[in-house]
Design a protein around this nucleic acid. Structure first.
Lengths: 339, 339
DNA sequence: GACGTTAGCTGAACCGGATAAGCTCAGCCA
DNA sequence: TGGCTGAGCTTATCCGGTTCAGCTAACGTC
């Protein structure tokens, strides 16, 4: 089966290539009668314009890039990325943009990918995940002038467009909720310490603990895997006095923490309350179901994609705020047992 | 920052565009001295050839497509796809192929995407997931002559290349293992019934139950979500006599099943043994950790990608077999309690 | 009836590579 | 010395679109 080109359509319609181009792109320059005839023929022979040819002359790739910089090991487990991607995709495919994905080992490799994509004109813009403090990708992208939307912040995104959610407010709400239940010793299992949102959450945690006059705000850092989450939990639960509540920076670690607590003979929520970030179906799978700070991650991805398409179209690079994560109380939180 | 083109390199090297092209692609036609000079200049000004221009003249996109046809709801939870994608990616990026991803609603939409990709010359080939019995995508791809590798089978893949793993053997092994522990009433929570691999597993399940003279081989079909997996489990555990072991078609349903069993006051594994497919870190997160049929899904993806690149290069479309899933016994299986 | 005006189209240039064909010149041989 | 060869380059063409300049015929205007 031969792929039809614009010349095939032109020949069958008895017009020039240019006329076909005008007709298909809704440009003036052809009569309505001719346009309809050309459209009918194009549909009939199943013509879709070569993305390469279009990219070459229009200098636009009709594609958006996403580089994921996490080891395959942790990529799979967290539902976060897949949900994000499906949201991004929904927005992109509605405007027939393609999504180009690349898994990279570290930030240097990621910057190299951006540089290559830019040189190859393979993408019109990129989405940047997992913002770090003092992130080398930001100046690199600014220098390339490659349209980008940073998913993260606020702060540390340079002059690039960004999309952030108010993690500080969400964490504060979670702590206040636990305090309202009667908790005074609250600990936290954080994510990778050099990620910007870990820093934001840690600062917020310390601030609210100070404000509410709680015991020292202990944060143990981890790497989002179940193993590390379990280990961190074991360490926290071995201190005296033991915390009566733990907030986890993702769902996978929270589930591992729940397992560890039960293994150590503690009853959740009577002996230990657990709050997870990244509410996902996983949180409802376990027993008791986990109280979680969640938001619609698909919508977050869609929002980011929409924002990026705007920047590509030439809109100013603004900092947009997405919805604040909402606390959904479930069975894993309760007043602490009186002792 | 202006993107350098081949003309820029040519100008700085004092040669023609053609000479640069020969030099960069390792073709004869330039002296070694000139080649080195051109390469040095290309590196210096950070030149990478426009993928669009190359695609246009070479008629190759240097990209592979993957359409995911599951609702966003279930896509996120299962680690399977993300692991598969990271394996595919590792193989592709090593040969500087890009991966183009698209999430679609159903098979008709997926076929439309293939048709568009083909017309746009956007991809050189595609990976096909979630093979169904009597799958409309197979004839569509054959008709387009779009290189493809079907992940699934055996059987039902037409003349397309495919990659399959011996699910029948794996399921048989799991049943034999449970029988060796002393189980006689084994049930199964299957995936979507019109998926080819569900059919294969169901057939294998019925065959081994007949051979070992077990009670009727009951399979309850589900949709891979935790909700449905839990519901199916509740139904199975309410029958009399109750099964003493359940095999689940994915990890998420198995975890939900574990939760339901514990909620109903059953002890796992004393009252109920549980076996999960798709061994993933999730299986080790819960308590007790789940006995699982697992394989290296990243490697599976890499294998599929390698196979597809071969087909694109013109190798015959063969049916390759990947490693058979291995049973990893953990805490969720034990001899049934004597009653 | 001569003269704009404009709608509706054509022809050609262009995007940035790959590549076939052609040109130049050194080296070699008769 | 002239002809032949082949290495090493240049030139021109092509891929399949977009877009601009230009052409033609119909129409309105005074």
């Amino acid at each position: 089966m031969k792929r039809p080109t614009i010349a095939d359509v032109a020949r069958r319609a008895g017009v020039s290539k240019g006329a076909v181009s005008y007709a298909l792109n809704g440009q003036p320059g052809v009569s309505e009668v001719t346009r309809q005839r050309i459209l009918a023929i194009a549909t009939e022979i199943g013509f879709s314009p070569s993305s390469a040819a279009r990219a070459l002359s229009a200098a636009t790739a009709e594609a958006v890039g996403l580089a994921l910089c996490r080891p395959a090991r942790t990529l799979g487990i967290e539902p976060f990325f897949m949900a994000l991607i499906s949201g991004v995709e929904a927005e992109l495919s509605a405007r027939s943009y393609a999504l180009t994905l690349q898994v990279v080992a570290d930030h240097d490799a990621e910057i190299a990918v951006y540089r290559r994509w830019w040189g190859e004109r393979r993408v019109d813009g990129v989405l940047v995940c997992d913002l770090r403090t003092d992130d080398a990708r930001i100046p690199a992208l600014e220098q390339l002038r490659l349209p980008a939307v940073v998913i993260g912040g606020p702060g540390g995104t340079g002059d690039l467009a960004s999309l952030w959610s108010d993690d500080a407010a969400a964490l504060t709400e979670a702590v206040e909720y636990l305090v309202a239940l009667g908790h005074r010793r609250i600990a936290r299992v954080g994510g990778l310490p050099d990620l910007r949102h870990t820093e934001i959450r840690t600062d917020a945690f310390e601030a609210v603990c100070r404000r509410l006059d709680l015991a020292e705000a202990v944060t143990v850092f981890s790497d989002y895997t179940g193993e590390e989450g379990g280990r961190a939990t074991r360490r926290l639960l071995s201190t005296t006095p033991r915390p009566t509540a733990v907030i986890y920076d993702n769902d996978v670690m929270a589930i591992a923490g729940l397992s560890v607590a039960q293994e150590m003979g503690l009853t959740v929520p009577a002996d230990l309350s657990i709050v997870a970030w990244d509410d996902s179906p996983l949180c409802r799978l376990v027993h008791p179901p986990l109280t979680a700070l969640g938001r619609d991650i698909s919508a977050y991805g869609a929002h980011a994609a929409r924002h990026l398409l705007g920047v590509i179209a030439g809109e100013p690079a603004t900092r947009a705020r997405d919805e604040t994560p909402q606390l959904t109380p479930r069975g894993s939180t309760a007043p602490p047992r009186q002792r």
